[in-house]
Structure formats: structure tokens, C-alpha cells
Design a binder for these strands. Structure first.
Length: 836
RNA sequence: GCUCCAGUGGCGGAAUCGGUAGACGCGUCGGACUUAAAAUCCGAUUGGGCGAAUAACUCAGUGCCAGUUCAAGUCUGGCCUGGAGCACCA
């Protein structure tokens, strides 16, 4: 064995060996229980960054640990390779995005291998390859057949810079998730997936996901945004239209003094009188011009214009005016809001501004005493309220509902509307359907055609994939490059054989990533999307690891897909990810690593200077996986030193180690202590991994064990007993470190004479009786304060501990002249003497 | 405004059940080895008080204020600060 540790040499050697021997191939056939460990697959952006290193190291250590524990582990990798950066790079260089993508994949593959990750490369998937996107298209058709994919004209989010529409989930604070430019609203005919059909079950089943963090679950719950309320229909006075309104406050219905429809409301023109037409048109035009950010700003002054028409409140037969205002949103509820200014902050502000009347219908006891004319309809100037009253109270001014508590009135009033045929109970979700078409080239083409005669027709399944054309001009501006192809557009109708044109929009890349974890179960299947039996065998994913930034996007879409595929009979389970670990960000000097800030650390440099084992050890060492991780050069150095220490400790004593040692039953105290220390370490490390993968404490326990062994070496006589005990300690240390320092342990293991890989070894077992020290430090407290510590034999019973405590000189001094009220003994730990 | 998470030395962080607060590491300081440096090894390192002392003793201490308990970083209630998510959602 070499005296010094040369990671670069041994890492290359073993990477080559593992690859040649296909060491990490996963068989579908095995008697062992299955375990599916998965990292979120990367976008091939060019180079790995430290976030990748952290993500893949965590999952790799989990996979290796489970393998040693006797599981048949599936640990695959692939590429989320469709998307805009490739297309933008292609535009810049005039090349096809496929080339740029392939180059990046090749480079990043090399890097992943340098990190020593135990992937089964035979299952690699690449979403931009026809053999993959064929099945993305096929799945789209299955959803289409089920009525879950549909096309509609709608106001959609448009990013001008990316020249495409975006899903709601991709708009962050009114800006594009990718390029940060302000998103506009456009009216376009687009493809949607009906995720709203699954809103209820996606919310409800969050409860089943006990292996997910609350942060992600509440984020999803908020996004789905369930609320319970009622729909009331109001008859229009001037014509025979009806306006349905969704409200969560049916209890306030007697207080309506006006009604607002969104500027985009479908019947708005019919609701506008000729005299008001110009003003309304102008208001609508203005509203269209506003950006999402301006419009959604809560501090914006509310504006609106009257339509000139009126509606009737069926509860009171009162007539009230109709307005349009952009604080009503076309996409939520029915696009119309019943306004009760006294009990809603927004309505209050609006009514104040336009001097609309107000009527109090919910009152607290205090209000009832202090407001004399509570039944009056007030003008906005006179109303005896400084702000809307949104607390609980009892109903006033509400006919037969007067005196009922408002919380109870909600149900009673809605029931009344049901009985009289002008309302119903309604559950409303904030979640909108998922817009999946993109006006871009580098994505899976949506497999439908538009026939001159038959209209929208799905492409027949046996003609899939619809291949991306290659005769395209990437230099075009303002339209999708795909539309420049001379061969793509014109085709024949699968129904009538007549002329048809292809859909030129491609799918959102999130569709590709919504099912890739299923494809790994059967990655090479050219006949099917995946075999159901194999999918049911491997899925759900036992441990999914990835960034929190996908809390809603990818994780919600994937859950939707799995539920839909389950209903289609394609899989036998409905939730894809049993346990989810959302890893924190990798920071440098307290802020996120980014090229613009210039605080990035290049993984290649770390591999080169210290080796992958150091990188792996360090990225796990300083913070628990879920927390942010602050990169420090000194920390890397420290881990490198530690690995060197381990190496030297073994290489210097190589001749004393034998792989078939026998630990003697009767051993010296010093040797017994070392044996116990090893068992304690095994127990601690095994538990730390089981308990939310606390790798930071795992690494510190490696160090503690190494320190203990090193101290022991200083005292060793090197007789046969010493050699056995030392061998046991070193072999255990190597196995415990094998999932993390994958190359170093393998090298040392074979240098010590092993014929098989350490990664095929069984995980260390511990003996509960030995996983504790032979003596303990008895803590002695007086009135709960630490007063003394005495080293005692661990076998002493409570009575003996009490005696020992009372015999302490310090205790004797303190107790003198006082009464002992009681003595509490915590077995094998502590004695607390309470005195007065 | 609503929801979730977090707050412990100079720093990252540790502490199954409530039971020695600060494991392990980084940094710093001191020492050994060396002609010297690097590397390596050994020791110290929460703050205050009293000490010549790196001895002994003592007080305080896990964001703040209360509470429960023999005992609180840990449990309960109320705040404060930071981060994240949602938000004119009727």
C-alpha cells in the first residue's frame, strides 16, 4: 500500500473498473426487496454545478447504503433535455439544438462518472430522443382520449422574450420563471391539461404523503387553494340574462349594494347600455394594457365604471347596479363578484371611492349597542364604520335570518337559495388547468392535426413519434422555428385522408419530466411506454431527492400524471413519490452560487485538486441535507485532511490488519473499549441515516471513530489480541465509510487483500450490549444544578447510584444542615437531590 | 394579510425519551518536529467574577416574556426577528 493518498490515481482506476464490470447494473429479477432511489434528473445545461453535486451525492449515498443493507436498488439517471436554453444556444450559433444538447450530455456524463455515482447507465433516458418523446406523445393522446387534454381560447401568460406562452406555475411574481421578463396576457387558442379535475384528490392525498415535508405539502395545498362557498344567480333587470356569482360569504348576501364583473367577463357587452358603452370599452382597453404585476398589486387604487344595467337580489328583491372593475378576475369563480362593502375590504374601498351605498348585515354586540340606525342603508359618507367589518357576528337587516350567528347563516342561506332554485353549494379551487402548448421548436410536437373537414384529429398511435423536423431556420424572430419547415406542416388527415396541417406547438418540458421516473422501470421498451408489471414492481419511488424549487411545478404535475395514469389503468398506484427529501441550496459566502455574482465553485477543480471522495464527504458534512449549505474552501481542505488521516493510519499499520480476524471474548479493558466504540459508531451511523439522512452527523461520527482508533494505536502492544481488535475496527470503519468515500474504501479494501468489492459487502451490524460504554459518567445534581460528576461502572443499579451520589464530598457539603426532600435517579445517567 | 420553516460560541453545526448545552469540524492561539517553511502531531478555545494561573471555586448563558417540572435548547401560551411560499381568489 502506498504511504500517501493519491485520490486522482485511485479514483480513475476504480471508475474504469466499475464501468467495465457493470458493477451497478440493476436486475429486474432478484429475491431481495426493492428500493428505488431517485434524484431529480438534470437539464443538460453544460456543466455540473455544486447543487447537482450535492443532490446526486445524497441520493448516491442512500442508494449505496440500501444496497449494503440488502436491497435490490434502482438508482437511475437521465436528461431533461428539451427546453429553451438549447434552442437559444442554437439560434446564437446557427446549429441544431440537438448538437448542443448532445455535447452537454457527453460532458456532464463524464463529470457524473468522475463523482463516482453508482448509476445503472443501462437505464439512462433522454427526453429529447424520439424513442422517449414518442411515449410522451402517446401519453398525451391517452389524456386526450380521456378528455383530459383539450384546446381552448383563453387569456394566457405570454413571455415576449421567450416568445411563448407559460403555465401559471411558471409565472413568478408576474415574471417569467426562466428569463425574469414581465409576463403579458394574450388571447390565444392553446392546449390545456385538465389538472383541475384532480384538484380535490391532489389536495386530499397530500395527507397520504407522510414521507414529505410539511413545507412542500402546504405549498401545494396553498396552490390548489380550496375554498367552500356558494353560487348565487342574479337576474338582470334590463334583459333576460343571469349572472352567477361565487362567494365564500353567503351570510352577507342581504347586504349587496352593487355587483362587479371582470373586464373580460363574457357577457359584458350585453350588460352594457348604449350610454355607457364608450366608457366601458375604454376601461376594458386600459385593463388589457396593464401588466399582470400592475393589475395584481394590492396597494393599487381600485377603479371601475358602471355598466348602466341592474340586477335583482332574490333575497330582498332589491335592485342594484352592475359595474365592471379589474379587481374582479375573469379566471376565478364565475368572473363576477357580489359586492357587500360593509363586510369586505375591497368592496369597502371601492364603494367609498365611487360613493356606492352600504348596508350592515353582520353586527357584533358592540355595534348593535353603538349604532343607532343599524337598519339604515347608508351612503358611503355616512356609514358608521371606519373599515369593513369582517369578524364574526349575528345577522341584522336580513329578514328571517336576523339574529342567527353568521357562521351558521352561511349554510342556512345557501340552503334557502337551493330550495328556491337560484343557488347552490360550491367548492372552488384556485388551481387552473395546465397550459402545455409552447410556441417553440425544442420540445415534443403535440401529436394532433387540423383537418380541413374533420377539425382537430389526434395522430394515430402507430404513426408516432411525430418527429421534429430538421429543415428549420433557427434565425427567425417572433415565431417558432418549427413553422419554417417545408416538410412538417402539411400532412393527411388520419380520419378522411384529406389535407390537414400539423399542430406546430410543442409540449411544455414539464410534460416530459412528469413521467420519466416511470420510464426508468422499463427504459428500453420500444413496444410500450413501460410495462405495467415492471412499473408496479419498482414504483413508487422510495426516496426522491431534489430542490425545493420544484415544490409546486414538477412535483404537482407528476402527482397529477400518476393519478391520471392510474385512472387510465396504466399503473397500479396513484402517488409517485413515497418519500421526498428537498435539499437546501449550496451557498457561497451566504448567498446563492451564481455566475453573475461570480461566487461559483467549479466541481471539476475540486475533483482535480482533492478528488471526488473529498467532494462527496465535504458536501455532506457541514449541514443536514434539507438545510442550505455554505461552501467553504477551508471545509474542503478539512475533509481532504481527514481522508488523508484515515489513509495514513491504515497504510502505516497495514501489516497488522487481517480481513479474517476473530475478536476474543475476554479482552483487556483498552481493547474492550475500542470494540465498544466501534459498536457505538455503527449504531449511531445506522440510526443517523435512518433518521432523515443526517449525513452531517454521520461524517462527524466517522471522525470520532477515526480519532478513537488513532488514540488506541498509540497505546497498542500489537499482540494477537490487539491485531484482531484493530482489524475489526478498521474493517468496520471502511464499510461504514464505503457509501461516502467510495474510491478510497475500495482501494484500501483490495489492498488489504479482499477479492470482491467493498460495495458488495453487507452493512455492519452492531450488538446492542456492546453498543454502550463499560463505565458511565454519573451526573450529580442538587436542586437541578450540576454539582459533581463521578465515573462509575455501567452495571450499577439505581440504589447504588443514589449511594454514590450521596457519598460525594460536594454533595455532603451542600446537604449539610438541609433536608433532603427527594432524590430522583435517572438510570445509568443522573441523580438529582432536592434539598430545602 | 394568510401559511410553513428557522433562531444555540468567532463560524458551520451537535444534543433518541425533557436529564452533563456547545459533539464533530472550521477558524484562532500556544507547543512539538524542522536550518526554515509546508505537511504532520499534541494542547487550549461560551461569556463574566475571583485568582499569578492554562488550578480550584462561582455566577450567567440556546431570539424575548411568562408557565409546567425535581430538571426546559427540548413541552405549553404570548411575542420578536429572519427566510420561503401564497395573495384584489370574492
Amino acid at each position: 500500500m502506498n504511504k500517501e493518498y493519491f485520490p486522482q490515481e485511485i479514483e480513475k482506476k476504480w471508475q474504469k473498473y466499475w464501468e467495465e464490470h457493470n458493477t451497478f447494473h440493476t436486475s429486474d429479477e432478484s429475491d431481495k426487496p426493492k428500493y428505488y432511489a431517485l434524484s431529480m434528473f438534470p437539464y443538460p445545461s453544460g456543466k455540473l454545478h455544486m447543487g447537482h453535486v450535492r443532490n446526486y451525492t445524497i441520493t448516491d449515498v442512500i442508494a449505496r447504503f440500501k444496497r449494503m443493507q440488502g436491497f435490490n436498488v434502482l438508482h437511475p439517471i437521465g436528461w431533461d433535455s428539451f427546453g429553451l436554453p438549447a434552442e437559444n444556444a442554437a439560434m446564437k450559433h446557427g446549429a441544431n439544438p440537438a448538437e448542443w444538447t448532445d455535447e452537454n450530455i457527453a460532458y456532464m456524463t463524464k463529470q457524473l462518472k468522475m463523482l463516482g455515482l453508482s448509476y445503472d447507465w443501462d437505464r439512462e433516458v433522454t427526453t429529447c430522443k424520439p424513442e422517449y418523446y414518442k411515449w410522451t406523445q402517446w401519453l398525451f393522446l391517452q389524456l386526450y382520449k380521456k378528455g383530459l387534454a383539450y384546446k381552448k381560447e383563453a387569456a394566457v401568460n405570454w413571455c415576449d422574450k421567450c416568445a411563448t406562452v407559460l403555465a401559471n406555475e411558471q409565472v413568478i411574481d408576474g415574471k417569467c420563471w426562466r428569463c425574469d421578463s414581465v409576463v403579458e396576457k394574450k388571447y390565444l387558442s392553446q392546449w390545456f391539461l385538465k389538472i383541475t379535475d384532480y384538484a380535490d384528490v391532489l389536495l386530499k392525498d397530500l395527507d397520504k404523503l407522510t414521507g414529505w415535508g410539511d413545507n412542500v405539502k402546504t405549498m401545494q395545498a396553498n396552490w390548489i387553494g380550496k375554498s367552500e362557498g356558494a353560487i348565487f344567480r342574479f337576474k338582470v333587470v334590463e334583459n333576460d340574462l343571469e349572472i352567477p356569482v361565487y362567494t365564500t360569504r353567503p351570510d352577507t348576501v342581504h347586504g349587496i349594494t352593487y355587483l362587479v364583473v371582470a373586464p373580460e367577463y363574457k357577457d359584458i357587452e350585453k350588460l352594457t347600455t348604449p350610454e355607457n358603452k364608450d366608457a366601458v370599452e375604454q376601461y376594458r382597453a386600459n385593463a388589457r394594457k396593464l401588466t399582470e404585476i400592475e393589475r395584481l398589486s394590492t396597494d393599487r387604487v381600485k377603479t371601475g365604471v358602471p355598466l348602466g344595467t341592474h340586477a335583482i337580489n332574490p333575497f330582498t328583491n332589491e335592485k342594484f347596479p352592475l359595474w365592471t372593475a379589474d379587481y374582479a378576475l375573469a379566471e376565478y369563480g364565475t368572473g363576477a363578484v357580489m359586492a357587500v362593502p360593509t363586510h369586505d375590504e375591497r368592496d369597502f374601498a371601492f364603494a367609498k371611492k365611487y360613493n356606492l351605498p352600504m348596508k350592515i348585515v353582520i353586527a357584533s354586540e358592540e355595534m348593535k349597542q353603538n349604532i343607532k340606525d343599524i337598519n339604515k342603508i347608508y351612503s358611503a359618507d355616512e356609514v358608521p364604520l371606519k373599515e369593513a367589518y369582517t369578524e364574526e357576528g349575528t345577522l341584522v337587516n336580513s329578514n328571517e335570518f336576523d339574529g342567527i350567528k353568521n357562521t351558521e347563516a352561511k349554510k342556512a342561506i345557501t340552503q334557502y337559495s337551493v330550495d328556491n332554485g337560484f343557488g347552490e353549494f360550491k367548492t372552488q379551487f384556485r388551481l387552473r388547468d395546465w397550459l402545455v402548448s409552447r410556441q417553440r421548436y425544442w420540445g415534443a410536437p403535440i401529436p394532433v392535426v387540423y383537418c380541413d373537414k374533420c377539425g382537430i384529429q389526434p395522430v394515430s398511435e402507430d404513426s408516432l413519434p411525430v418527429l421534429l423536423p430538421e429543415d428549420v431556420d433557427f434565425s427567425v424572430v417572433g415565431k417558432s422555428p418549427i413553422t419554417t419547415s417545408k416538410t412538417f406542416r402539411d400532412t393527411i388527415c388520419p380520419v378522411c385522408g384529406g389535407h390537414a396541417v400539423r399542430e406546430t406547438d410543442t409540449m411544455d418540458t414539464f410534460m416530459c419530466s412528469s413521467w420519466y421516473y416511470l420510464r426508468y422501470a422499463d427504459a428500453k421498451n420500444s413496444e410500450k411506454c413501460f410495462d405495467k408489471e415492471l412499473a408496479d414492481k419498482w414504483l413508487p419511488v422510495d426516496q426522491y431527492v431534489g430542490g425545493i424549487e420544484h415544490a409546486i411545478l414538477h412535483l404537482l404535475y407528476s402527482r397529477f400524471f400518476t393519478h391520471a395514469l392510474h385512472d387510465l389503468g396504466l399503473v397500479g398506484f396513484d402517488e409517485p413519490f413515497k418519500n421526498l427529501l428537498t435539499q437546501g441550496m449550496v451557498l457561497k459566502d451566504g448567498s446563492k452560487m451564481s455566475k453573475s455574482k461570480g461566487n461559483t465553485v467549479d466541481p471539476d477543480e475540486i475533483f482535480e485538486n482533492y478528488g471526488a471522495d473529498t467532494a462527496r464527504t465535504f458536501i455532506l458534512s457541514d449541514s443536514p441535507p434539507a438545510r442550505d449549505f455554505d461552501w467553504s474552501d477551508a471545509g474542503v481542505e478539512g475533509c481532504y485532511k481527514f481522508l488523508n488521516r484515515v489513509w495514513r493510519m491504515i497504510s502505516a499499520n497495514e501489516d497488522k490488519i487481517s480481513l479474517d480476524y476473530v475478536i476474543p471474548e475476554n479482552r483487556t479493558k483498552v481493547n474492550d473499549d475500542l470494540v465498544r466504540t466501534v459498536h457505538i459508531a455503527i449504531k449511531g451511523i445506522t440510526n443517523d441515516i435512518a433518521n432523515d439522512f443526517q449525513f452531517n452527523t454521520v461524517i462527524s461520527k466517522y471522525r470520532e471513530l477515526t480519532n478513537s482508533i488513532s488514540d488506541w494505536v498509540g497505546k497498542a502492544q500489537w499482540n494477537d489480541e490487539d491485531k484482531s481488535v484493530f482489524s475489526f475496527a478498521i474493517v468496520s470503519l471502511l464499510k461504514l465509510m464505503a457509501p461516502v468515500a467510495v474510491h478510497l474504501t475500495e482501494e484500501v479494501w483490495t489492498q488489504l487483500g479482499a477479492k470482491t468489492s467493498i460495495h458488495d459487502e453487507k452493512w455492519c451490524e452492531y450488538d446492542e450490549n456492546l453498543a454502550k460504554t463499560s463505565s458511565i459518567t454519573l451526573v450529580i445534581q442538587v436542586n437541578g444544578k450540576l454539582k459533581d460528576k463521578i465515573e462509575v461502572d455501567a452495571s450499577l443499579d439505581d440504589e447504588k447510584l443514589k449511594e454514590t451520589a450521596l457519598s460525594s464530598e460536594k454533595v455532603k457539603q451542600l446537604v449539610e444542615g438541609k433536608t433532603i426532600v427527594k432524590i430522583i435517579v435517572v438510570p445509568k445517567k443522573l441523580v438529582n437531590i432536592v434539598i430545602k
